[in-house]
Every structure is written in C-alpha cells, then in structure tokens.
Design a binder for these strands. Structure first.
Lengths: 133, 133
DNA sequence: TTTAGTGCAAAGTGTTTGCAATGGG
DNA sequence: CCCATTGCAAACACTTTGCACTAAA
C-alpha cells in the first residue's frame, strides 16, 4: 500500500519511509513529527532517528504524498489525506478534524482576475459538542 | 489612537506597547515578531528588547487587540486588522494579502449541529497577477 | 563502486522564562 | 512604596545541517 504509493510518486521506498507513510495513512488525526517518531519507532527493526523523520516528511511533502498543515504556531502537522478537504480545530481540546470538501457548499470565490487561485482551505475554529448518549 | 485602543481593552499603554500597536495598525502586511522589532526599535528613545516584543505581542493577542495568524510553518505573524477577513498567500513571493469578508460570498456552513463554530478563516493559495500597466 | 539514505550530534530559528533593574501610580 | 513591565541572557522547542557510516543498484 504505502510501498506502491511511494513508487508511484517516484520516492524510493526505504523501510523507514514505508512505515512513516503507512503510519500517516492510518492516522486520521494530524500527527506532528514527534508523534510520527513515537508512533513508528517500535515497528522498525532498526532505530529511527529524529533527523530521518524530518527528512522523510519533507521528502513526502515535496513528492505530494502527504500535506503539511500549519494550524497552530510552532509545529507542523502532517496529513496523508490528499483528497481536498477543510479543517475543524476544536479550540477546547486542540483536536483537528477533517471536513469533507462537499460538506461546505461551494463558495463563490469571486476574488477577481488578479488572484490566480491554486488552492484554498477553510479552517473552522470552534468546539466539538459531546455526542449526547 | 493606539493609546485609546489599548486603554479600551484594559492594557496599560506603556511606550513600548503603544509603538508596537501603532506599527501593527499601520502595516498592512503581516509582520513577524522580528519585523516588528526591526520596524519599531528606532522610534523609541530607549532600547527595545526582543523579549518585550514577544511579551507585548502575546499581551495584545490575549487582549484581542491583534490577531495571531499561522499561515506558514515556524513563525507567527500578527495582524491588527480585527475586522473579519480571509487571507491570500502568494505562493511565489510569500506575500499575504487580506481579503475582505464580503468578497467571498457567504458559504453555507452546514457542518451539522455537533460543530459549534466560533470562527472560520479561508486561506487562499495562489499567485498574484502583476497589474498590467 | 557509485550514489542515495540514515544516524548522530551540533547548529539554527523562533519563542519563552527567570531574575534583577526600572519606573509609573 | 509597590507592583507591573522591561531587558538581558539562558533555556526551550522544533527543525535543519554536516559528516561519517550503511546499504542498495
């Protein structure tokens, strides 16, 4: 799975890269580099260095395998959900939730011809209501 | 101007705070802490320390005088435009431009009752066309 | 054998903090 | 006189980099 994805993007699938990619594919929160290191280091026979995590994440971002999201100051989070989507940040818990693209009705982006928009992303801030049982 | 704004928000208007606030009110790009320090230190009779810039910026954010925006990893930018607006990031130059709220037609935020939205912000990424003279 | 990738430690940024000195109320 | 604010330097958190070692083509 991760293996083929890396191949298809022209990234040599080393063991470290495969497990990091797989970890990001499996996790639907948005891990930081440190969380990736923590979550992955035990699934490798060899040790995994922090430098390799950062190098790999940068490689994956450049190759378009994952996206870097900066929703809070000081740290970058990584997201293997490359389908277009928005983010909801729970201001209480800091939890970040993906919002499907279609859930937000198309917005008419009539900014004018001087803005050549390549991408846009909506970030919602609020609180997530507890599901009442 | 800056003086009254600080008073009205319950922040004691020290000389350092006033010039920093005024600088942010005057600048329509989105300065980093360092750019604030550079832009402000000559307009004070006394020296201004980096720590005070950070302390002041945090105070201003907490008091709601300015907003902190994290649009790029690694550094926080500050924005004295407290009127609701969105951002356009020029992917070529890194320039960040305010987009008036009304320019983006109302988006139907039908996320569902479990999301109690307090705020949202749209970030556009793209290129700004040169104004053809 | 050549080259890309890894690991370690050191260096680099951006930001915060401890503490003494300062100064307005 | 008191307490908040400042400045400095050290500490901190996150990320990058230089360099030697390893492994794969």
């Amino acid at each position: 799975m991760a293996d083929e994805l890396l191949q298809s993007r022209g990234v040599k699938p080393t063991p470290q890269r495969v497990v990091i990619t797989q970890f990001l594919l499996d996790s639907h929160d948005h891990p930081t580099a440190d969380e990736v290191l923590e979550g992955v280091k035990d699934s490798l026979p060899v040790s995994l260095s922090r430098a390799t995590v950062y190098n790999t994440l940068n490689t994956l971002v450049e190759a378009g395998v994952v996206k870097a999201v900066s929703l809070e100051p000081g740290r970058t989070r990584y997201d293997a959900n490359t389908i277009e989507h928005h983010h909801f940040v729970d201001t209480k818990t800091g939890k970040i939730i993906d919002i499907p693209w279609e859930k937000v009705s198309q917005l008419c982006q009539t900014l004018g011809p001087e803005y050549k928009i390549q991408d846009y992303q909506i970030t919602f801030f609020g609180e997530l209501a507890e599901p009442t049982p």
